[in-house]
Design a protein around this nucleic acid. Structure first.
Length: 546
RNA sequence: GGCCCCAUCGUCUAGUCGGGUCCAGGACAUCGGCCUUUCACGCCGACGACGCGGGUUCAAAUCCCGCUGGGGUCACCA
């Protein structure tokens, strides 16, 4: 190592004396993955922290599975996350192209170079022979490793057969003795015995490289200083180290991140966990909250802050703080963090975000404040939206609440559903609301309280009746705010409908009364049994004795 | 199975490098309570972990060894 390359360190991570350059290298073979965003976050933050560059490189050497649609979706999703790259296939840069499918000659040249130096060789083994060898090795209880059949082939003969158009691949000639130490910055040196490492295929028979060759060549040519990638790669790193050595290049610093996990601790997978970034975007997760959440996985801020921005994350980044245990991707916590971010938004910003999410400006501003404290995700506003759209609302499941005065009479161990009194209350309220000059929550509160006083009922009782009348259910946003957002016309329509219903259902009250009285009796019986159970020191089981 | 990595509350983690202030702190979830026009938000409280066994040491969550457990990896996929 020359003096100019003598590394200094940043909190234990070696930093070469040249610009820090890191990369994210997704394979465009499917949905944009949360793991990609996770690794991209740490790469981007590391680059920014050290005034370096963050590169996006598309690893599309698998012709069968790569698609342009997938590539576009990945780029879009990473942008949604706010993880913008400095160089990439769409923005260009000095060391492009940034799509491996456009760099094939480069890999072929380099593979040839390794053949010339005796560090790689052509292999003409058929898939069938490979299968047989594999089967034999398995039967003998051995690991699968290429048996070196073509390893000793005369390079001149190999070249000639290749020239004659014979199908072949190029393999790495891995040393058969000694060991390779992978210098992982978080784990120290990880030792591998060379004889256990396979003669990896570097160039496939279609002329395209495998990941191993392409990533080493590109990382070198793109002057990557730090490879921050998932731990699943650590076992193939000795091959990469061997390649750097064969080329005579200095390897980058390796930093292997823990793998994201499903709830059962296995590697995160779409079978067991939503892994598509689209899922989170369309579920109403805020990108800044998503990134905040990713920053909690396998990592914590030095001051244990729970809520932070990308900028704060970058500012405080210290890769040595990474925990190596694989973190479970906990949707509950993501939801919580998202809720915190939503509630921290200004009223204007929140209504803009909701409007953008539901594609309706007016609805957005109407709903935002009603839903703010009830939302963990933007999608939760849908629940509120239903409250303020439409002339009718279904309250059949909660119609008992439409009767006022009932609660106060429970003390007399009977429930009276007074339809007449309830209707008088609603009609009085309707009249007061019709007379209002201004339709706003303050005026609405005033007339509501007046109506309650006039009816001589409890405030909670009267409010609940109106709440169910307009929302169809007992748990809903603030009453005055909801009425204001609903607007006078729709509010009055819903209240009138209740008034009419009360009139039409007076004949059924006796039946309802009996039913409710039976429920009351059951309640009292339970209370008695609970008291008994407590005396006996046991637990109450509602199913027992029914 | 071979090899490799990892190991603090159910989950995310602080503390581990530089042993003592940790009978282990915070957050999510859960369960109580308060606030209150309901729900929610917010606030307060409860429950809850150093996997096990050896060793080193006056002292170990922290250092060493073994075991157990979990995960990854063993393709002409990345």
């Amino acid at each position: 190592m020359t003096p100019a390359e003598t590394p200094n360190t940043s909190a234990g991570i070696p930093i070469p004396r040249r610009p820090v350059r890191v990369r994210i290298a997704p394979s465009p073979t499917g949905e944009p993955h949360v793991g990609t965003a996770y690794i991209a976050l740490f790469n981007l933050a590391f680059a920014r922290k050290h005034q370096g560059q963050f590169i996006l490189r598309i690893e599309d050497t698998d012709q069968k599975r790569s698609t342009p649609q997938s590539e576009a979706a990945i780029l879009k999703s990473l942008r949604w996350c706010g993880l913008q790259w400095d160089e990439g296939p769409d923005v260009g840069g000095p060391v492009g192209p940034y799509r491996q499918s456009e760099r094939s000659e480069l890999y072929q040249t380099h593979a040839q170079q390794l053949i010339n130096s005796g560090r790689a060789y052509r292999c003409f083994c058929s898939a069938q022979r490979l299968d047989e060898v594999r089967a034999a090795q398995r039967a003998a209880g051995q690991d699968w490793r290429y048996d070196g059949h073509c390893r000793g082939l005369d390079p001149a003969v190999g070249a000639e057969r290749a020239t004659n158009g014979e199908t072949h691949v190029i393999r790495l000639k891995m040393p058969t003795s000694g060991e390779t130490i992978v210098p992982d910055a978080l784990r120290g040196g990880v030792r591998y015995e060379n004889h256990r490492v396979d003669d990896q295929i570097l160039l496939k028979s279609d002329g395209l490289p495998t990941y191993h060759l392409a990533n080493v060549v590109d990382d070198h040519l793109m002057a990557i200083t730090h490879v921050i990638r998932a731990e699943e790669w650590i076992n193939s790193t000795p091959k990469h180290i061997e390649l750097y050595d064969a080329f005579g290049w200095e390897p980058p610093v390796f930093i292997h991140m823990p793998l994201l996990r499903n709830a059962d601790k296995s590697k995160i997978s779409k079978r067991k966990n939503p892994v598509s970034l689209d899922y989170y975007r369309r579920s109403g997760i805020l990108p800044e909250a998503f990134v905040n959440f990713l920053g909690h996985l396998g990592y914590s801020m030095p001051d244990e802050r729970e809520v932070f921005t990308l900028e704060e994350f970058i500012e405080a980044l210290d890769l040595t703080r990474i925990s190596l245990g694989g973190p479970v991707f906990d949707l509950d916590k993501l939801s919580h963090i998202n809720g915190l971010h939503i509630r921290a938004l200004s009223p204007t910003t929140l209504s803009q975000r909701v409007a953008a999410f539901c594609n309706d400006d007016e609805l957005g501003s109407l709903i935002a404040e009603l839903a703010r404290e009830r939302m963990d995700t933007l999608a939760d506003m849908l629940d509120i939206e239903s409250l303020i759209i439409g002339a009718e609302v279904d309250w059949t499941e909660h119609q008992g609440h439409l009767f006022v005065g009932a609660a106060s009479k429970r003390k007399n161990k009977s429930i009276v559903l007074d339809a007449k009194r309830s209707r008088a209350y609603f009609d009085d309220l309707i009249a007061r609301m019709e007379a209002l000059k201004e339709w706003n929550k303050e005026a609405i509160e005033t007339v509501l309280r007046e109506a309650v006083a006039k009816a001589n009922i409890q405030v909670g009782d009267g409010f609940m009746a109106v709440r169910v009348a307009i929302a169809g259910r007992p748990n809903a946003p603030g009453l005055f705010e909801t009425l204001e957002a609903l607007g006078r016309a729709l509010s009055l329509a819903r209240l009138r409908r209740v008034s009419n219903w009360l009139k039409g259902h007076s004949g059924q009250l006796a039946e309802r009364k009996q039913k409710l009285q039976r429920q009351l009796q059951q309640l009292e019986a339970w209370e008695a049994r609970i008291a008994l159970a407590k005396q006996a020191g046991g637990r109450f089981d509602p199913k027992e004795g029914q």
